[in-house]
Nucleic acid binder design. Sequence first.
DNA 1: TAGCCGTGCTAAGCCGATTTAGCACCCGTC
DNA 2: GACGGGTGCTAAATCGGCTTAGCACGGCTA
Lengths: 360, 360
Amino acid sequence: MRLTRGAELGRKRVTLADVARAAEVSPTTASLVLSGRGDELRISTTVQQRVREASDALGYRPNIVSIGLRNGSSRTLGFVSDTVATSQLAGDMIKGALETARQHGFMLFIGETEGDPKLERRLLDAMLDRQVDGIILASMFTRTRHVPSGLDQVPAILLNALPQQRTASISAVIPDELAAGRAAAQLLLDAGHRSIHLVGAGPGPDDVPPGTVAGVERLAGIRETLHGAGLELASGHLLTEWLPPDGWQATRSLIDRWTDGDAIITLNDRLAFGAYQALQEAGFSVPTDASIVSFDDNPLADWLRPGLTTFAIPHHDLGRQAVELLVELIADDTVPTAARPVVHRVGMPLRARGSVASRP
Amino acid sequence: MRLTRGAELGRKRVTLADVARAAEVSPTTASLVLSGRGDELRISTTVQQRVREASDALGYRPNIVSIGLRNGSSRTLGFVSDTVATSQLAGDMIKGALETARQHGFMLFIGETEGDPKLERRLLDAMLDRQVDGIILASMFTRTRHVPSGLDQVPAILLNALPQQRTASISAVIPDELAAGRAAAQLLLDAGHRSIHLVGAGPGPDDVPPGTVAGVERLAGIRETLHGAGLELASGHLLTEWLPPDGWQATRSLIDRWTDGDAIITLNDRLAFGAYQALQEAGFSVPTDASIVSFDDNPLADWLRPGLTTFAIPHHDLGRQAVELLVELIADDTVPTAARPVVHRVGMPLRARGSVASRP
DNA sequence: TAGCCGTGCTAAGCCGATTTAGCACCCGTC
DNA sequence: GACGGGTGCTAAATCGGCTTAGCACGGCTA
């Protein structure tokens, strides 16, 4: 029992002073030795040895709080999101952030705002009070958002979001929705489809649920590629909710005027799930009667039969990138305002499964 | 622009000393006033007024790191999990913990171990180095686990896990799987079903994938209730993976010997999804031809047609409870070893949807 | 024998707060 | 006019580490 630290039950942590006492040197010397500056400051090998032995014997670990107090850093980042941790989808974003932070020796404070600006303010303050070295402001789904005041005083990155204020001096990391939209359309064109229905938005460029970057850009990419082939969307269904029943409904109405060779792009996988249900109920088979391409790579996509071909939101990479950039910012000691803000776009990889068939 | 804090660009945080200077008093006085001990220590109302005005004008906020250094606390908890944050299911657990922590004025450090004990050790150390006031050790699925050494030196709670060591002096919070098992069986009995098939485990009490508390207890509850009605499971399918294809497979084999009035209990919702697929492909309709009851309340359950009747894992409550207990432990300043460990069981509420039909 | 230099270590201040002990002043009293 | 007692404020220590400046000692040179 009680193997670590050599700590007596209820005894406090071992401090540098304890080590110094045990090694019969001053705290200064102990500090010097343990921070590797022993040679530089000409501490004899004998003493260095003694200090290190004492340190090991006692299981000394420096108190980061104290170090932080002195030099103003804490090796800690704040991760404030609207609802990422709780979300069924974006957990990987946290995971990527967590992993990358750990690799750089940082810990992560996590906070959720539920979209409440007051709560967000309080959370940010609580983190700043704890001397975080930087802040990641994350959104569950890609959108533009207001950047709270004070964030230009601190290294900070927007994750899966773009700044609303044009003047904001904050960099952002978002998925490359535009490219994914193009690729989705191209995929169906390459498979020989010429009549493509969109479920979730369209057909016009402005027929998009408000505030969603994903909707706008996916639609734009799709339209752009179709235009390049001299085509227009065969139909579009603007939906403000993107849940299975919505996809079911839209697809039902499609079935009445279905012609062989038609294909569907759904703007997310839950819509696609609804589409599967509607097609199945109508006796249609995927992909023989209908090809479907989608976006997100919800775990669902892998469970459907046949598997759903979809463009994945690179959550893990998004989280990783955001931390990577933030750590750089901190290391450079760049005042955010000094650097010019950049938008980093992370590719959305294709998960090809069984929902697309070729047409001659 | 630059409205908060009255901070000049790049200026450091406002400290107590700044406030004292602005109010032309000593830091001591400022501290006394701002911590509400002004009257007690007979500071004149004039001076108190002056200090408060200065504090407001400068936007002073105390540095928690410093306070923590002095009194050894940090208003911070550590949440170490195998893979909760990333999990598709258990995000709500984090959310409950986050909310509750915030309500008590705590922030949460989150860390993921991926089940790697070395990593777990490092994360725990990193948190301890940052002076966390307590630790929650969480598991994505309910299981018994080894409690790492040192955790008996610090307030700590197991979340969704039970201690492997019988001697461990740590309390735990888990879902009440046993009661849910009983309730699931009772629900089908009440609907008039007498022939009940189990997908995921059984039929014997030991036919359970290793290491899962959920499997053991759900099965035990089901068997207990059936026995009470003088029944046995009509069949059981031990599965070591609980994914849709596994459910599909098991259900297919069930279909060959299906008799009218049979019902299925699947040990989680993904198995149920597979069962739906198999039944649908065989031309069976849920719930007319087959009633299904399940566990977890995966979002999926609400998307299926008909909706899946299932017993929810109370993730949010689990997280809340764990923090609540931990905060109590911290407030009581109880040495963990002093208190006797308790296992708190949180009820699994029924989500009744459309997958169960009554038999006369 | 004073001055200089190198060696090996330490005192003391600092980070930002809290807290204990106590100082200076004024009033009233004997 | 010294003493006691209340009033209103502050100096200084403390938490745990880092860092700058510098001390003490011995040996060598002038």
